[in-house]
Amino acid sequence: MSRHSEVNVKNNRRISGVALDAADHQILTALAGNARISMADLGRLIGMSAQSAADRARRLEDLGVISGYTVKLDHVALGLALGAYIRVRPAMGELPRVAALLADIPEIVECDRVTGDDCFIAKVFVARIEDLERVIDRLLPYAQTNTSIIQSSPVWRRTPRLG
């Protein structure tokens, strides 16, 4: 059964009702597991030719369902042994400045604007506690922060359930 969704295409128009069938779901699952899979292997995996698999993947890219391909990096192997989440509550009138500042801090690997008492939750990886303190200190003139150190990650980032 296909699932209808709203997707962003390259020109930022929204298209509603894009039908994703079982083969699309298989392609997305396979690419999420290994973005470097060859089109020949992808085709074999889902029971179609390499050309058909490539055409389908390109269609999913054109529709904006696939927005890019990435690599997973091991932060510990890179010498960034300390991970933390920083909840950020901008001072009155400072939300745009804080958003820009969060985007400008290279140690922040991702950040979401959220509902609730805080406006942002930022994920940061650094080598030492002193480096984390410097990140927090950059935010303090414009926001309150609350930081939680990551002890372990029982669930790594994964693809949302498809279908």
Score class of each variant (00 low, 15 high):
H25W: 01
I86K: 04
Q51S: 13
L60K: 01
I121P: 01
T145N: 07
N11V: 13
S52C: 01
R134G: 04
D137L: 08
L102S: 07
S16N: 11
A35N: 11
I15W: 06
G64S: 08
H75Q: 12
G17P: 10
D21Q: 05
R134D: 14
V114W: 01
V18K: 02
A32S: 14
Q151H: 11
R113S: 15
R138G: 07
D137Q: 15
H75V: 11
D131F: 07
I86R: 06
C111D: 04
L60S: 02
R58K: 14
S153P: 00
P90K: 03
P154C: 04
H75P: 04
N34P: 09
N12D: 15
E110I: 08
V109T: 12
V109S: 06
A143Y: 08
Q26S: 15
A99N: 12
D118Q: 04
L42G: 08
R58M: 02
D112M: 05
S152G: 06
V114H: 02
V126M: 01
D24R: 01
A81Q: 09
V124R: 01
N146S: 13
P96G: 04
K72T: 14
N11H: 10
V135R: 05
G64W: 03
V65M: 02
F125H: 15
C119K: 10
R59L: 09
I37A: 07
F120Y: 11
P141W: 08
N12Y: 13
L20K: 02
M39N: 14
A77N: 09
N11E: 13
I37N: 00
D112K: 08
C119R: 12
R44V: 07
L45S: 13
I149H: 09
T115F: 07
A35P: 13
A122L: 07
L140H: 13
V155Y: 07
D74A: 11
V71H: 02
G79I: 09
D41E: 14
D131W: 03
T115K: 00
A32Q: 03
I150H: 01
R128Q: 13
I108V: 13
P106Y: 03
L132G: 09
G43H: 02
L139V: 12
D41Y: 00
V98H: 04
M92P: 06
A100I: 01
H25A: 11
R89E: 09
T115P: 01
L42P: 09
